[in-house]
Computed example of a mutant assay.
Amino acid sequence: MSRPLLAAACRILAARGLADGFLGHVSQRAGDELLLVRCRGPMERGLAFTEPADIRLVTFDGGPGAPGELDGYVPPNELPLHAEVLRRRPEVAAVVHAHPAAVVAADLAGIAIRPVVGAYDIPGAALARGGVPVYPRGVLVRDRELAGEMTAAMGDRPVVLLRGHGLTSAAPSVEQAVLQAVSVDRIAALSLAVRSAGGTLADLPDADLDQLPDLGAGFTVAVAWRHELARIGDEPVHTMPLGSLP
């Protein structure tokens, strides 16, 4: 577990325009029925200014995970979104919820996240090829019933779009959950640009997608994460050695 890591993840989402206001949050599993999550404090300024002190240990039901953890802080309204994914998917250790404008616009325009790019974003192409489902309700996911609906729509996929709302990304690490969200946003923005230019979107042929190499987590996660940290002027922050990142 790492509060600095989650704080950096929030700042990266803001820098990438996926959560550039004060809405959106990142969480990390911290034990049975416990998670670290970005909370709002008395001096809330938005995700771009998240500090480790804004990351608090809470129970899945929103109570303090240790004495004093919520003094002056409030968990996000959509904490059930994080908790339900962690409850139902034991392989997941981190959840990102963000509001990328391009993702929302593409979905509302009827544009699915599809493998329309290849070597431009190899991890993104693989993610899109497997499918990115949509939760069709534009609601605030603030209780277990709604979170259960969203998680059911997500299935076993790493990312689900939330219509008129944003996306949820789940992964074995905070780094991967953030990078997945960045890839989906990138594909959404490119798809909108193609359609706006009068073009027609088409999936890459299977033969081309089959040729895309697995570059390994040391490149697609570790190096990509160092790049994201450098973009916001941060030093590397990790919860595990780079070679062991999933």
Rank of each mutant, 00 (worst) to 15 (best):
R142H: 11
A125K: 02
E91T: 05
R137Y: 14
A119S: 13
P133K: 02
D121H: 07
L140W: 08
G131T: 08
A153H: 10
D121Q: 08
V134P: 00
G148Q: 12
A98W: 01
G110H: 10
R144W: 04
P136Y: 07
G124I: 09
D121P: 00
H97R: 09
A112R: 11
V95A: 10
A98T: 15
A153S: 13
D107Y: 00
Y135N: 01
G155L: 13
V95L: 12
I111T: 06
D121N: 13
T151W: 01
E91D: 14
V134L: 11
R144Y: 03
V96P: 00
R114Y: 06
A112K: 06
L108M: 14
V92H: 10
H99D: 11
I111P: 00
A102V: 14
I111A: 03
V92A: 14
L127M: 14
G124K: 03
M150Y: 01
A94L: 09
R129W: 12
A101Q: 15
G148D: 13
V103S: 10
A94N: 11
A98R: 03
P100L: 13
V95N: 08
Y135V: 02
A128D: 06
A126W: 11
L140D: 04
R114D: 06
V141I: 15
V132G: 01
V141R: 00
V96N: 05
I122W: 00
G118I: 14
L146R: 09
G124N: 05
L108K: 02
G155D: 15
D143W: 02
P133A: 03
G110R: 07
R142Y: 02
I122Q: 01
P123D: 08
G130A: 15
A128C: 13
M154A: 15
T151Q: 10
V96T: 10
E149C: 04
A112V: 06
L140T: 11
R144E: 13
P90M: 10
E91V: 03
I111K: 04
G130F: 11
A101D: 15
V132A: 04
P100Y: 08
P115G: 07
A94P: 13
A125M: 09
A112C: 04
M150I: 07
M154W: 05
E145N: 05
A147R: 00
P136V: 08
V116N: 00
R129V: 03
A102G: 08
A147W: 01
V139K: 00
G124M: 07
M150R: 00
A102T: 15
A106K: 01
G131F: 07
A106T: 07
G130D: 15
G148V: 09
G110Y: 10
R142E: 11
V132I: 14
E145K: 06
T151M: 09
V116D: 02
D107F: 01
G131M: 07
R129E: 13
V104D: 04
G131I: 10
V104Y: 02
R142N: 10
V103L: 10
L127E: 03
R142T: 06
V95K: 04
E91F: 03
A128F: 09
V134E: 02
P133E: 03
V96R: 01
V117H: 03
R129K: 14
